[in-house]
Structure formats: C-alpha cells, structure tokens
C-alpha cells in the first residue's frame, strides 16, 4: 500500500495582513503596573469577592465574573513556580547562552509572571526557590525596569 505522491505543483504566496488590524487592548492594569514600576513598586488589581490578585490587573475577575478595580501593591520578591532553560530556538538551533526564564509568583499576589533569573547555574534552579527583583538604577515605568531576578 505504498503511497506514491503525485507530481509537485507550484505554490502561490498569500498574506494574512495582520498589520491591517487595529487591536484594542484594555490597558488600565498595564498602566497601573508600569507607572508603579517607576517607583519600584509592583501593583495589581484585587477581586473584592475572592481576593485573587491579578498582575497586570484585568477589569474583571474571571472566577467571580464581576468588575474589579481595587489597586493593591505586592512585593517584588517571589517564588519560582516553574521554569524553563532556553537552550535552542524553536527550530533546534542552539542559543549562544543558556537562559533561565521562570514563572514567578510574586508574594501577596496570585499571578504568575515570566522573568529571567540570573546569577545562578541553571542546574541549581528548582521549583519553589525564592527570588528577588533586581531593578535598574533609573526606572522609567517600563517592564524593563526590572532587569532580572536573582535567587535569595
């Protein structure tokens, strides 16, 4: 039952013009978070019903399905919930440097954030390890204000 593939036929280039889209993205939570980062503070939104603290804060709690807007500050230390060590790109080509990118749950909040963990050998990284944020010297209210995380 060997299948014999037919003769090759040509291909036509077509495009999905995603650049034609004007995406509307809710941004209050992002603004509250990044503005706070200017002062080295991390702020999220708490659901007044179930106490879940989201970062960045959405306008509604998806568990309780209610509108939420209570701004809360959380710590810049946290726990690594999971991590991956990037070693190659998606097609298998090795990266020049191994990089630990971790899912970090900051203290006092329920959201997991991805951050790079530095100053440790990737072989020593563990789920559950404690990390702290290392801020840049002059934060500007951007995600890049936290340069990286380091083990405590």
């Amino acid at each position: 039952m060997a299948f014999q593939m037919g003769e090759e036929t040509r291909t036509f280039p077509i495009t999905w013009d995603v650049s034609a889209n004007k995406y509307k993205i809710e941004s209050r939570g992002l603004r509250i978070l990044t503005e706070g980062m200017k002062d080295k503070k991390i702020r999220g939104i708490r659901c007044h019903e179930c106490d879940t603290v989201y970062i960045p804060g959405p306008f509604y709690c998806r568990k309780c399905h209610i509108e939420i807007d209570e701004v809360v500050e959380v710590k810049d230390t946290g726990t690594v919930m999971s991590f991956a060590v990037d070693m190659a790109d998606i097609r298998g080509n090795p990266l020049p440097e191994k990089r630990i990118s971790a899912m970090i749950k900051l203290d006092d909040c329920d959201a997991w954030f991805i951050g790079t963990v530095e100053n440790m050998d990737w072989k020593d990284a563990k789920v559950g390890m404690r990390v702290k944020s290392i801020w840049v010297d002059e934060p500007q209210g951007k995600f890049s204000d936290i340069d990286h995380f380091e083990p405590i």
Partner: peptide, 11 residues
C-alpha cells in the same frame, strides 16, 4: 527576553 514579562521559545 530579559527582565520581567519575558517571552521564550514559542509554544
């Protein structure tokens, strides 16, 4: 991909 909110490795 450094810092906070990094993305890595696609799916």
């Amino acid at each position: 991909g450094r810092g906070m909110g990094g993305t890595s490795g696609g799916s």
